[in-house]
């Protein structure tokens, strides 16, 4: 047996992947009456950790306290937290089945690993802040709100693309 045989399989056609994603989103609407999300789960996790470390600080903060619930059960017992847990598992499963599981760093040919990781960290930070200001990220706002014809979501969506295209030129060395 030769493990090298397993080369990663190609990605799905975007339309079919999108269709599948759309059906998942629709299922969420039909079953739960709510859409998908991601950043909320991280916020809850952060709020929980802050609450563990400095309970008084978290309870007094208008930001964290919103994510701590009424105190009757753990704030981690939350829909989005479980959903994001599923995202990890689903992504992992898909990766395993397509032989794409690999410890590696995604970067353009001209980038270096430390630089890429630093950029990833900064980009993540910006994302976290942006997502909180906008009350959602690409999944919670663009995807979910987009399907619901939500005003804010469409405005948000165009701004994501707008913002990204506006600065894309300056970061081209990272990717191409």
């Amino acid at each position: 047996m030769n493990l090298e045989q397993h080369t990663p399989r190609p990605y799905w056609n975007s339309y079919w992947a999108g269709f599948g994603l759309g059906l998942v989103l629709l299922a969420s609407f039909v079953i739960m009456g709510r859409g998908l999300g991601a950043s909320g789960a991280f916020t809850t996790a952060v709020a929980t950790v802050v609450h563990q470390v400095a309970p008084a600080h978290a309870e007094n903060s208008p930001f964290y306290s919103e994510y701590l619930g009424d105190g009757t059960h753990s704030p981690l017992k939350d829909w989005l937290v479980f959903e994001v847990l599923g995202v990890f598992v689903g992504g992992f499963l898909s990766g395993v089945l397509a032989h794409r599981l690999k410890f590696t760093v995604e970067q353009g040919p001209r980038s270096t690993t430390p630089r890429r990781l630093a950029f990833a960290f900064v980009g993540g930070g910006l994302m976290g802040i942006g997502a909180k200001i906008a009350l959602g990220c690409t999944s919670g706002q663009a995807l979910t709100g987009g399907a619901l014809l939500n005003v804010g979501s469409w405005a948000f969506m165009w701004c994501v693309f707008g913002g990204a295209y506006a600065v894309a030129y300056f970061f081209r060395k990272q990717w191409i």
Binding site: G125, I133, S139, C159, V160, G163
Partner: peptide, 25 residues
């Protein structure tokens, strides 16, 4: 706020290469 957040997110997207959902994957 959603416009500002969207712009920030867009910039973060290009710099970081992911959005929160895709980063989990």
């Amino acid at each position: 706020p959603q416009i500002v957040g969207g712009l920030l997110l867009g910039v973060g997207f290009v710099i970081g290469g992911y959005c929160p959902g895709t980063s989990c994957v």
